[in-house]
């Protein structure tokens, strides 16, 4: 029993999230994350950052330039559907694809059904193209934040497997 609890506690401390707002360490631990990275603080936004950075598919800078930049570790799929040629480039450059969760939280009814289908499709194509993917809240306000338990369930809704969902949430540790 104690070994199982220790394993659960270790698992909890390997989960990460990314948000567009600052989340202090205590709040991050309460939510079940080892750290919640802040865009603009812990992680830079491409272009305009020399350290570890993140790019957005909807960004004005060319996707190819972002994908080839050594500082960019991940690209956020905020402009769906994702293109296979973009994913091929990401695979070649070893970039991580991040599926943002907060747009889903704003939807309801049929719009939510469509949004979920789009993200599921994006995950499926990424898996087919052998691109590693992850899920992050990309929260802009405190009501968009999720606990690690909720983020894993959201990832499970997209990928269908609990093990894969946990791996997806752990992959954000690349920014550590």
């Amino acid at each position: 029993m104690q070994a199982r609890r220790a394993t659960q506690e270790n698992d909890r401390m390997r989960y990460f999230d990314i948000a567009e707002m600052r989340v202090d360490e205590e709040s991050a631990r309460t939510l079940g994350f080892k750290k919640v990275f802040n865009i603009g603080g812990d992680i830079g936004k491409f272009p305009g950052s020399d350290g570890k950075s993140i790019a957005f598919m909807s960004g004005k800078e060319s996707f190819a330039r972002a994908a080839r930049s050594p500082n960019v570790l991940a690209i956020v799929a905020d402009a769906l559907p994702v293109q296979k040629k973009d994913l091929e480039l990401m695979r070649a450059e070893g970039k991580l694809l991040i599926l943002p969760a907060w747009p889903l939280m704003e939807m309801a009814g049929m719009q939510l059904v469509k949004g979920t289908a789009q993200l599921r499709n994006a995950f499926r194509i990424a898996k087919q193209m052998r691109v590693k993917s992850s899920v992050a809240t990309m929260a802009k306000a405190s009501e968009h934040l999720l606990s690690s338990m909720q983020l894993i369930e959201t990832a499970c809704m997209l990928c269908g497997s609990e093990e894969e969902a946990k791996e997806m949430v752990q992959r954000l540790g690349v920014f550590e």
Binding site: M105, L112, S142, H144, L146, M149, Q150, T154
Partner: peptide
């Protein structure tokens, strides 16, 4: 609970701990 963001009294988030 992740998808409930408003109960009529403004934006709200629920975190399952």
């Amino acid at each position: 609970l992740s998808f409930i963001k408003n109960l009529g009294s403004g934006p709200l988030g629920f975190y399952t701990l």
